[in-house]
Design a protein around this nucleic acid. Structure first.
Length: 150
DNA sequence: GCCAACGTTGGC
DNA sequence: GCCAACGTTGGC
């Protein structure tokens, strides 16, 4: 099983929105590294749900992959902000996955804590800010969960 | 709202 | 294939 971290702005789609909906499509990823990470996901992989552009930013919950990467239909929708004229039906450029709600953590784990906690120094989110879908080791995943659960 | 980091685009 | 210009992300 692999673990991941996915970022969402709470003003756009928060962990509470995911809890209410039960599951969602992770549409709109338009960065190749993030897309490539999604393409490596398999059903059952666990995801740290991270609120970016939040006060404070940090991990707020856990989700699970329930559908592996498939073409994001928004790339062919002229009216979508995710439209990409260079993406063809034969060779879709952008992918998305489906995830389901697992839990909302009892406490937010702030980015600041991720950066200073022993064992988490190498987390991508702490080193390289701008990647919206990134791998996390199982060990890192467990440490983050333990912090949140006290 | 600012701006640093960094990814993408496009001219050459 | 280099690199300048430009756009976006996301912390602060």
């Amino acid at each position: 099983m692999q673990c991941w971290l996915m970022k969402s702005e709470p003003d756009v789609y928060s962990i509470d929105d995911l809890e209410r909906d039960g599951s969602t499509y992770w549409e709109g990823v338009r960065n190749y590294s993030a897309r490539n990470n999604m393409r490596k996901m398999t059903v059952g992989d666990l995801v740290l749900y991270y609120h970016s552009n939040a006060k404070p930013p940090g991990v707020v919950g856990v989700a699970r992959v329930i559908k592996e990467a498939y073409a994001d239909p928004h790339q062919w929708d002229r009216n979508s902000k995710y439209f990409d004229a260079k993406s063809t039906r034969d060779d879709p450029r952008w992918s998305m996955v489906d995830v389901e709600f697992v839990e909302k953590l009892p406490a937010l784990v702030p980015l600041d804590t991720l950066k200073t906690t022993k064992g988490l120094e190498e987390m991508v989110v702490a080193k390289r800010g701008r990647l919206s879908v990134q791998p996390v080791t199982e060990k890192e995943f467990e440490i983050v969960k333990r912090i949140a659960h006290g």
